[in-house]
Design a protein around this nucleic acid. Structure first.
Lengths: 223, 223
DNA sequence: TTGTAATCTGTACAGACGTACAGTGAGCTC
DNA sequence: GAGCTCACTGTACGTCTGTACAGATTACAA
């Protein structure tokens, strides 16, 4: 049934037509966006007629909802487990996430921009995990529910999601698509490098200076 | 002429029709994407007829190119200056970037995902700046043109761009849109927080452990 | 005033889109 | 084997889209 959820080696013809349509929709939505993808294009990619797509999913919105469901189904275990273990916000999870099936992440990346409620929920879950991580690791710096931890966690979620949303540009610069399983860890390792180095920079005198300038600019927005 | 480039206080009716159309297109493209925005919707928003849009920009692609030109025009000075001063990759520039006109950044964020050559060039410029910054600040860690600095700079560019691309989610969580000038510095300050803290984490024993796991996973991709 | 170019409007058209629906055939039950 | 359900196809319809184009209006130069 899964096709994408449990990548078996069976040829595509062995899949249910319904699953084949959903997989094709996942790819088309990911590549062309919600508006750009067409039911006829999806039907062609799945090797079925336009009518069958309607028969199984009623409408375009219904098909999109089915794609959303497939994503949450695939990520549910991973996310809830991450939340339970309290490791959701730690950088390691992102690498784990990258190890997941590429098509799903590609779809999620587009859905994040096209604005689906599922993607929004996932972003919030990521931010909540980051908030928990920050508050747990540096309780004095990030008191739970403080504005500071809320801002930092939100931005952290956006930065990490950004590497998924913009994976196409990374693929172009890397030579390999980082969303393919064999190069999944490459983003994670680079992120560790960035954090280690720019982290040094952030606590350096120059970093303090930037922080002061920004703070002054925020409190006294003149010139 | 500028309208967006030099925000004067004159009412919209004082602007050239051509400039009004371009401004409306910027906003519509930013909100609905290249595919989702329609020439009729743009014409309505600008208060002109559909025919006039064609007259001034020939085609939808022509209008999009004009929007791209407006963006590079607005950013050219800023970016070249940043490159000359060698400050393009430093975190401070992002705050500077955020202080620019909101509509332009919103358009750029969408263009980055919809895939315009202009957006791609700007991403590359950002990555090149980050590469320069890393190599200049930590020459031994990031030898110029090494794979390591290339990976780190690419991911850094993606993370920073991510805060722009996903600004809608930040706006929802912040309560204020961070792309409005008065809250421009909020993202920058939060980023400094994230870098300072996660930077500590990245060089901690736990960070080393994650790095080792990821490296082993990369070199020996078995279970 | 006449002529010419630029600005601007309205209509018309071909194609692509989502959706509705009649119809076909295979499998299954009673 | 009659009846039924379900997977599946093909066609048709109304709407929306980008584009083309004729014509009206204005600005300006000769």
């Amino acid at each position: 049934m899964g096709s994408i959820l449990s990548p078996d080696d069976r040829p595509a013809t062995d899949l249910t037509a319904r699953a084949r349509i959903r997989d094709a929709a996942l790819a088309q939505f990911a590549e062309h966006g919600t508006k750009g993808a067409t039911l006829r294009g999806i039907a062609d990619a799945a090797g079925v007629s336009l009518g069958l797509v309607q028969h199984h999913f009623r409408s375009k919105e219904g098909l999109r909802a089915a794609c959303d469901d497939a994503v949450v189904e695939a990520f549910r275990g991973r996310l809830t487990r991450g939340t339970a273990e309290g490791t959701l916000g730690e950088p390691g999870l992102l690498g784990d996430l990258f190890a997941t099936s590429g098509p799903l992440l590609r779809y999620l990346a587009r859905a994040l921009v096209d604005g689906s409620s599922t993607a929004a929920a996932m972003f919030d879950e990521l931010a909540a995990g980051a908030e928990d991580f920050l508050s747990r690791t540096w309780p004095d710096r990030y008191p739970p529910d403080s504005p500071r931890v809320r801002d930092a966690a939100s931005v952290m979620a956006a930065m990490h999601s950004g590497t998924i949303v913009l994976h196409g540009y990374l693929a172009r610069r890397f030579g390999d698509d980082p969303l393919d399983r064999e190069h999944a860890t490459r983003i994670g390792l680079a992120m560790l490098d960035v954090y280690a180095s720019v982290g040094e920079f952030a606590v350096s005198p120059t970093g303090d200076q930037i922080r002061e300038t920004a703070t002054r600019l925020r409190d006294h927005p003149d010139t």
